[in-house]
């Protein structure tokens, strides 16, 4: 089976600083992956390697079976959209789209135009004159309409307001189901985007600490809600990630899957067992808050 991405023992050093340390993982074709990590964890370094913007110090990378660096067939099939400074970009929106159409073999201009309409982008305005949100929307449009087999969004939506982000999420899911491809989304907005991910990778201090299906991952913990005394008694000995109390009602987030007996016990005591959020897990697994 050819994986969309195979990363084996990859390391990256900036002079003496190790940005990535022996990272290995595989990504399947047609899935959406969430890449989570705190600032400086190595997310962008890793994504730059996949986009062939730099070469790894050690290890191997394969994209659709081939090493990507300076490989024309692979490089044109990888699109990397990231948050960037466009203050000097005097090209117009339409010029940027035409350029992408010229060099991206799967680019679809009709779809790009639909997105331009949806995002309300002015076609004949220079990129540098667009608002931050419009710039993000333009590059996200290029990322989606390029329909590259490996599509990477690295915090590319930070400038967008909430309704625009919603359009992006909707389009991402819809276009991905119509034209399956592998998508990697790196983000800080975990709570807002968790439903998009099929699988999650968490990277911390240059090391991959976890790769798991989203559903499996969130079954690794639970929330227990009920009267303070009952909750406290129930969670004794369990690993608490977070707790909140309002009056006599308490909600505790625990880490670790609950056994069937524990679930029954909770039910008998009138406690409500809920699903943990990816955000809570992320914060726990990477040590501190964002």
């Amino acid at each position: 089976m050819t994986f969309a991405v195979e990363v084996k023992d990859v390391s990256l050093n900036y002079h003496e600083v190790a940005a990535l340390k022996n990272i290995s993982f595989t990504l399947e074709k047609g899935k959406i992956y969430g890449l989570l990590g705190r600032n400086g964890a190595g997310k962008t370094s890793l994504l730059s390697l996949l986009a062939s913007l730099r070469e790894q110090t050690g290890g191997t990378i394969r994209i659709l079976g081939d090493a990507p660096f300076e490989n024309p067939e692979v490089m044109q099939d990888v699109v990397f959209i990231y948050e960037k400074d466009n203050k000097d970009e005097s090209e117009k929106v339409i010029g940027m789209l035409k350029f992408a159409e010229r060099y991206r073999p799967h680019f679809n201009m009709d779809y790009a135009m639909d997105l331009v309409k949806g995002f309300n982008l002015p076609l004949n305005k220079a990129v540098k004159k667009l608002s931050k949100g419009q710039q993000s929307a333009l590059f996200v449009t290029i990322g989606l309409a390029s329909r590259c087999p490996l599509t990477i969004f690295d915090e590319a939506y930070l400038g967008m307001d909430a309704p625009t982000r919603e359009i992006f999420y909707k389009e991402l899911l819809e276009d991905q189901s119509n034209h399956p491809r592998t998508i990697i989304i790196s983000t800080h907005l975990v709570s807002e985007m968790d439903y998009l991910f099929d699988e999650v990778l968490i990277i911390d201090k240059g090391t991959l600490i976890l790769q798991e299906e989203n559903e499996t991952l969130i079954s690794r913990g639970a929330t227990i809600t009920g009267t303070a005394n009952e909750v406290d008694q129930f969670v004794k000995g369990l690993r608490k990630l977070n707790e909140q109390q309002l009056g006599n009602t308490k909600r505790v987030v625990i880490y670790g899957a609950l056994s069937k007996e524990q679930r029954n016990e909770a039910k008998e005591k009138g406690l409500e067992v809920g699903v943990i959020s990816l955000q809570d897990l992320f914060i726990h697994l990477t040590g501190e808050g964002m």
Binding site: S52, L53, E70, P72, M75, Q76, V78, R104, C148
Partner: peptide, 10 residues
């Protein structure tokens, strides 16, 4: 050009 998927060599 490299950011748009073209090689340094090309």
């Amino acid at each position: 050009y490299v950011k748009n998927g073209l090689t340094r060599k090309d």
